[in-house]
Design a protein around this nucleic acid. Sequence first.
DNA 1: CCATTATTTTTGACAAAGTCCAAATCTGGG
DNA 2: CCCAGATTTGGACTTTGTCAAAAATAATGG
Lengths: 140, 140
Amino acid sequence: MRDPEATLRQHDLPVTAQRLAVLRAVSQHPHATADDLAESVRTEIGAISRQSVYNVLNVLTDKGIIRRIQPAHSPALYEDRVGDNHHHLVCRSCGKTEDVCCAVGEAPCLHAHDHRGFRIDEAEVIYWGTCPGCQQKSRP
Amino acid sequence: MRDPEATLRQHDLPVTAQRLAVLRAVSQHPHATADDLAESVRTEIGAISRQSVYNVLNVLTDKGIIRRIQPAHSPALYEDRVGDNHHHLVCRSCGKTEDVCCAVGEAPCLHAHDHRGFRIDEAEVIYWGTCPGCQQKSRP
DNA sequence: CCATTATTTTTGACAAAGTCCAAATCTGGG
DNA sequence: CCCAGATTTGGACTTTGTCAAAAATAATGG
């Protein structure tokens, strides 16, 4: 993230130490949980309440400044990278999460043939599997 | 589900009233939550503990007899229909969930180009949008 | 620069969804 | 019919997140 402060102002959000710190933490630790981020912020600015972390993450997510992903069996993860329609790879055994570009430029996944009258605004894709590290561990 | 009892035996699972009732409930109420299913089972066999519902759902899911889907902002949903690689449409406003066939027979969604060394075993796709009913409500 | 006002932050209680554990009960095989 | 092992039950507990009210802070206008 280039300039967290400018980003907040662009979205008419009052600039606070907590928001700046959370925004930087998300930027520096992609795919971190709210708890991870709270820890990270605390080492940076000393203290922050749990509620504030959630408040900030919610408002930033609502404004589209960050993106929330919620894989099964995991608390929500946050990332900086928005607006480029990428998806995620998640390791079933260790939870490691990585970005992947959409399979094909045109994003065929984004269009269901029979959409049952739903107005679709997003197609979320999660690839489940085993990461390289865990593959090695499981081969004795 | 044709024959719940046979299904359990095929998977070496002792047959119990609770398992049969949960299995039937899942079959009759696709996309129901654990709580919904508990309610349903209670009207059928009188009583079941919350823990047993979870036990049964977990063992059935592990054996691949039923499938668990976990959309964001929702408790887990269970369904009967397994092994046909279909996906889901979820309404952002009322949570209504419907099945959709994979966009193309060959399931292009299942293959990420750059899989980062992960061994992928499933591609989960959730289409987020607004269902027909909620579209009408929001148009005054 | 200071006061005002609306917004944020904090604190603590609370809720939902699910798991852990030990005791009681039941299933299936001999 | 009995036994061993698996299942069910009940209750406490954990995790993730939200609600609400009070205290603190940021931005605006004079």
